[in-house]
Amino acid sequence: MIEGGSGATAPYTDAARARLVMAYEACELADLARAFVPIGEHELNPDGTSRWPGTVLADAARVVGAAQRFFEAAAVFERMGGADWQVIGDVLEVSARTAQVRFAMAETAFRELLSPERGPAAGEAGRLRAYVAREPLEVALDLDDWVLRHEDGDSGVGTTPVSGGLVRRGPRRRT
């Protein structure tokens, strides 16, 4: 919720919430990509071709879209953490201006999500990102469960692999 609500958002930094959006996008991408691994018993024709032409390509396009959202979320997280456009450009081997043109709209959209005056975001993806940014603890706990369900047992992620890493804001000083 936004500040003034339950207080779920207030304790976390904008960078922590941006990192959480990135984690959410990574989870979505992983789930979409993982669905491609099994080959269903009735998925293929006897000659090995698809029984439903075009469906695999449509599903792959959804994976690419999820990867794009993850990529943008990573750039927004870097910006919220203080990286300037030059750093982002250097990492991507493009100019600072090219990096800014590529990611400025995603950064602006994220900052608008955090605004208490902002109404519901447009579209399903916008609503989901708004929920992730505004309800960080609830989303982090869900992602904790997701990580633990998919853990291979030797990574030592602990019991709170997402929520345990969120950085809280320091106490506010009264003036």
Rank of each mutant, 00 (worst) to 15 (best):
V94L: 02
L141W: 00
A133W: 02
A15C: 04
V56F: 14
A18S: 14
I2C: 05
E93M: 15
G153P: 13
L141G: 05
G126I: 03
G54C: 07
H150C: 11
V64W: 10
F36G: 00
G164Q: 06
W52D: 02
L57R: 10
V157A: 07
A125L: 02
T175W: 15
D144Y: 01
R174C: 06
R149N: 14
R97T: 13
G54D: 15
P161Q: 04
P161Y: 06
E138Q: 08
G170V: 04
A18E: 05
S163R: 06
R62T: 14
E112C: 00
E112D: 12
P53D: 12
E117M: 14
Y24N: 11
A23E: 05
L57N: 09
Q68W: 07
T55C: 01
R127Y: 02
L137K: 06
R129W: 08
T55Q: 12
A26F: 10
G7N: 13
W85E: 03
A58L: 14
G119T: 05
G119D: 13
G54Q: 06
L92Y: 08
P116G: 00
L113Y: 08
A10E: 10
Y131W: 15
R51V: 13
F103M: 04
V167D: 01
D14L: 11
S115V: 03
G82Q: 06
A10D: 09
V167A: 10
P38D: 11
S163I: 01
P46R: 11
S163Q: 04
G165M: 05
R172A: 10
R169M: 05
L32P: 02
F70Y: 15
V94W: 02
I39A: 06
D14P: 01
A122W: 10
P53A: 12
T108P: 00
A61N: 00
C27M: 11
A8Y: 06
R174M: 05
A58I: 06
I2Q: 07
R102N: 09
L114Y: 03
E107D: 15
I2S: 12
L92K: 09
G82M: 00
A66C: 10
E41Q: 13
C27G: 05
A66Q: 11
E78P: 01
G48Y: 06
Y12A: 01
A140M: 01
A73Y: 08
A23N: 07
R134F: 06
G156S: 00
G54L: 00
V94N: 00
F77Y: 13
R111V: 00
A122G: 01
A75V: 02
I39C: 15
G158E: 12
E3K: 09
G81N: 11
R62Y: 12
H42W: 13
S6W: 09
V132P: 04
R129G: 02
E3I: 04
G82I: 00
D154P: 02
C27P: 01
A75M: 07
F77D: 03
S115A: 15
R127F: 07
P136I: 04
G65M: 11
A18H: 08
G153H: 11
E135P: 01
A73E: 10
G158V: 10
G170P: 09
G89Y: 02
Y131K: 09
T49S: 15
D142I: 04
A23C: 07
R34W: 11
A121Y: 03
H42D: 14
G119E: 10
P120L: 14
A35M: 09
M80T: 01
